[in-house]
Design a protein around this nucleic acid. Structure first.
Lengths: 217, 217
DNA sequence: ATACAACTTAACAATTTCGTAATCCCCAAA
DNA sequence: TTTGGGGATTACGAAATTGTTAAGTTGTAT
């Protein structure tokens, strides 16, 4: 949902976001926004600060006060002059701000990142067809069968599975599974990968030579 | 790197950024800046517009003309009166601007976001019709078909594709794909190009005789 | 103490990726 | 037409990276 009192801006923003596959609703002031928020339950609100009938700051406070919208992303649209507001906005629970005049590429890129951020939830259970990784129980369920992996193997596997398809560099893996201080040989990773492949006899992990490993379902 | 002819400002900016863990170098005019830029290779340049010995605008143009600094963020420091310059600055490839008088909190907050932007938006996916290059997954998708290229080939290809149309000199390619230390023969590049063309049987890479290669969609 | 699982490492095998040389082609200038 | 300067191809050995196995290490429950 885009909230701004200038129709030109609503139109520009709406057009550009729709071009990238987003569904966009608009509102022309804070009061309007609050009303429509309940109806459309948007994932993200682009909120102008200077508006008649309840400004952006006030609107933001009200949105944040309602637990129903805890997961709603708020991004401020700020005119050059509202310097203080920008900072204040971030303190009030906004997630980002975009300076006017709006540059379409930047707008889209910011919105993308905002969504990316919330999608990267480290929910404790990662689910795929035939495979479920439960971080809390330290358990992998593969085709209905529980497989329990030792700590390092589990951490390595769940790291890879946390972003299917994405290649993790060996260094990255060492950092995240072993930590920065510990120094282990290079073959260590391979050996763990081997054991995982062996225990879930299905090749979820694929090698990218010279780069690292990735999870591939 | 902070560039400004007023020492007071250099000091204020330096102090505040160092307080937040940034490493700060200073320069007092455009000429000085260009020189030091080559030495320190800063991630971000805060550039005053009104300066003797080459103003900020001119300096910005020169920085942007050098591919070595493609990834360098430029933020202008503008006196309130240079409104027109601000807009012009953004058109010249600056990433943001901060109005003087400088307010420390705002300064730091802008610098933070600028860094956040490059780390996040370093859009790991380059998209063209029928072609998608996913740096994160180390994967090229051509007409819906996944093609996985070996490391050097991938890096070479994604380098070229990162700036469609721009010609990369052979030297430049060697630098960016192989690194400065490694020395390999000239024919090596050709061979890799060949393999890429072969694997994506479509000619995305075009040769510029006596100069280098470029990506052409 | 003993047994055992988890983790590392070493050593060697198996692959894949790289770099180069040799040769072929193309095109433009002479 | 010739000729010469790139560039394109090809094939192959060297180098780099992984896979695999087995043998230590360490820590912990029995």
């Amino acid at each position: 949902m885009v909230v701004d009192d200038e129709k030109d801006i609503l139109q520009i923003v709406k057009y550009n976001l729709e071009l990238h596959g987003y569904e966009v609703e608009t509102a022309e002031n804070g009061v309007d926004a609050i009303t429509k928020l309940g109806i459309f339950k948007p994932d993200l609100v682009l909120l102008d600060i200077m508006m008649p009938h309840k400004d952006g700051i006030q609107t933001c406070i009200e949105i944040r006060a309602n637990p129903d919208f805890d997961d709603t992303i708020i991004i401020f649209l700020t005119a050059l002059s509202d310097e203080k507001s920008e900072i204040r906005g971030l303190e009030l629970g906004a997630d980002d701000y975009i300076a006017k005049p709006i540059k379409p590429k930047l707008l889209v890129s910011r919105v993308h990142s905002a969504f990316r951020r919330i999608t990267e939830d480290d929910s404790s259970v990662i689910i795929f067809p035939d495979l479920e990784i439960n971080r809390e129980k330290f358990l992998v369920v593969h085709k209905g069968k529980e497989v329990s992996l030792p700590r390092k193997e589990f951490e390595l596997f769940s790291l890879l599975a946390s972003k299917p398809g994405r290649v993790f560099l060996r260094n990255e893996i060492l950092d995240k599974v072993w930590g920065n201080e510990v120094i282990v040989g290079d073959r260590t990773i391979d050996v763990h990968v081997r054991k995982i492949r062996q225990k879930l006899n299905a090749d979820f992990i694929s090698t990218v030579k010279g780069v690292g490993y990735k999870f591939q379902n």
